[in-house]
Nucleic acid binder design. Structure first.
Lengths: 358, 358
DNA sequence: CTGTTAGCGCTTTCAT
DNA sequence: ATGAAAGCGCTAACAG
């Protein structure tokens, strides 16, 4: 390909000596980073053509596309998505608001969501609330990025948060729970039912002296409610309970169990608000020489990977964590692409996994 | 406070009947979302004053601040960070590029990074490469958001990626590894040394028939190199090895162990590239009735929480995962605030945790 | 298929 | 302490 000695050499339909481009302020001040306009000038086309080559190449003649792309490659041009988003009102951002990533329970969900949305051309901006009251500030900040959609764990939001989210007018998925009053779409499961199922399971197995160990978070509390209701229905009540501030760690779980025992509680089964806690309980049981499940049955929640083969005595509740992320992504994308999503509310359910007998 | 009947009633230093504001195109078209200009008009001040109230209230008279804030609250104004970022060239975004969140090894790092940066007013945009060749595209896309800093796991980047990152001219932390040729700053540890330490440890314990189980990723390969070197120095070689594609799962780890055994390999110790693999190996050992560590020692890597109390026979290598995130955040922030960070390269080291004898 | 014009919503710079 | 003007880098909408 011949060198093009001057910018506008025989392309772009320039009919005569008309100057190639409005010639921007001579010296390139500012960031130093290559702009679309730089590329346009060097390629001898208009800025909008470069824009099209980047975003909608099918609208541009193949030869032009190729030529411009060459210039892009040579200059190392990286489109400024801030500017693009502002102009087009399409940020290509999806916000995801999640309590934490460290307890492992949400990571497959995040990964699935991120992967699926990335494939569709969206970036996920993660907001971590840390189980605290940070949600409100976080939501506001993150909505400032003008995300095109929002994924949020939980269904209990402050009035201010609800209002802010609603006024953003974007598709929303509330996940990991169910509600009668969704902001928009919901992908989750019933925590009351989980709690109830755990209690039913233990009672059906013949346990009667049931204790429990919980983290103090809203969804765990709802599981506990379901749990207690079922116990009551069977004429039982907890023989002991420990509730500690989130987040759950194995250490705290173990300590909780130790506390129960030192208080004289002698359960034949312990239900825990997480697998992490359950592991702590198992550790304490082992330390005390309690056979599991012969002398003490332990149930967790979440079915994290470690809960499987290596801890064969730990029963738990399996959630399709990856599925929640995938379904949420699909619901959001459907909305974004104008197709109304098939269902507003998806109950992904759960599954009690009994490893005490298998 | 008295109602203000008209926009510019006696504030903003208007000296005469000068019209309050250039009156934007009458009807508010577009997004529907409240803009800074809307707030300004309602509050009877100029847009820049609203901007200052939001970003630098100390430059504005207290009464004005209060008044404008009231209007902001009433209208539910959420500043458009895309526009702000474009105008100010300060996106307040930090990009974090990480292989995955699902294997648990990086989550504390991400959490610490995110927490620390959030407190300093930055959002973290997470890019998940998935251990694939997606890094290049990811880096380009994410640099399009004009992050003010970059956190990236690993030190081996393609030339294109290196060039792109460098031309972004922002502070960079490469993490989770060390290198002689950093892009900018480094917070990590030596994988060769980890591998060497694992081998030394096993040899010192008297093991001689050492097998290993690895995921096929670049850093694991470097650990293996260190591992093999030390074995060789002691006149040993692996009695069996399994290398499988990332990501690591317990199932694959277990299968790898089963394969080794069925190939007739009879190790007295197995080194694994991750705790997850190690757990799979433990599960298979248990299934075969092999006492751990009496008949078979197992070493993992990472010291994930599950590796602790509940799996007392699993030795491992502890990394200060949270510390890496925190140190990286601090290094980036120091750079962003103009203070040169104390050190360009931080070796956080590691710690061999022996649970076979404790 | 390509270009022109006019902003997107905010902040900078320089006045006042 | 507050404001006016001029963009940031890009794309929508319309021409041609």
């Amino acid at each position: 390909m011949p060198r093009r000695p001057r910018a506008n050499a025989g392309r772009t339909g320039a009919r005569d000596g008309r100057p190639a481009r409005p010639a921007r302020p001579a010296t390139s001040r500012s960031t130093g980073s290559v702009t679309l306009e730089d590329v346009a000038r060097i390629a001898g086309v208009s800025p909008i053509t470069v824009s099209r080559v980047v975003n909608r190449p099918e609208l541009v003649r193949a030869a032009t596309v190729e030529h411009v792309q060459r210039v892009i490659a040579r200059t190392g041009y990286v489109p400024n998505l801030l500017a693009g988003g502002l102009a087009s009102r399409r940020s290509r951002i999806v916000a995801a608001i999640v309590p934490t990533v460290t307890n492992g329970i949400f990571v497959e969900t995040i990964q699935a969501l991120t992967d699926r949305l990335w494939d569709a051309g969206y970036h996920v901006v993660l907001g971590l609330t840390g189980y605290t009251a940070r949600e409100e500030a976080l939501v506001t900040e993150i909505l400032g990025r003008r995300p095109e959609a929002l994924f949020i764990v939980g269904v209990n939001h402050s009035p201010v948060t609800r209002r802010r989210i609603l006024s953003a007018q974007i598709p929303v998925v509330e996940a990991w729970d169910l509600t009668e009053t969704p902001l928009d779409m919901v992908v989750g499961f019933s925590h009351e039912k989980v709690g109830a199922a755990v209690a039913e399971h233990l009672v059906a197995k013949g346990y009667r002296r049931i204790a429990s160990v919980w983290a103090d978070d809203a969804r765990a509390a709802r599981r506990r409610r379901g749990f207690l209701e079922v116990l009551a229905r069977h004429g039982l009540e907890e023989v002991g309970v420990s509730i500690t501030p989130a987040p759950s760690t194995q250490r705290v779980g173990r300590q909780s169990m130790a506390d129960l025992l030192s208080r004289g509680v002698r359960p034949d089964a312990v239900a825990c608000s997480s697998d992490t806690f359950a592991q702590g309980v198992l550790a304490e049981a082992r330390a005390r020489g309690l056979a599991v499940p012969a002398e003490l049955a332990v149930m967790g929640f979440g079915d994290l990977e470690f809960a499987a083969d290596t801890v064969p005595a730990l029963s738990t509740v399996r959630i399709d964590r990856e599925g929640i992320g995938r379904l949420a992504a699909e619901a959001l994308l459907a909305h974004l692409e104008g197709k109304p999503p098939p269902r507003k509310v998806v109950d992904v359910g759960f599954q009690v996994v009994d490893r005490a007998t298998t």
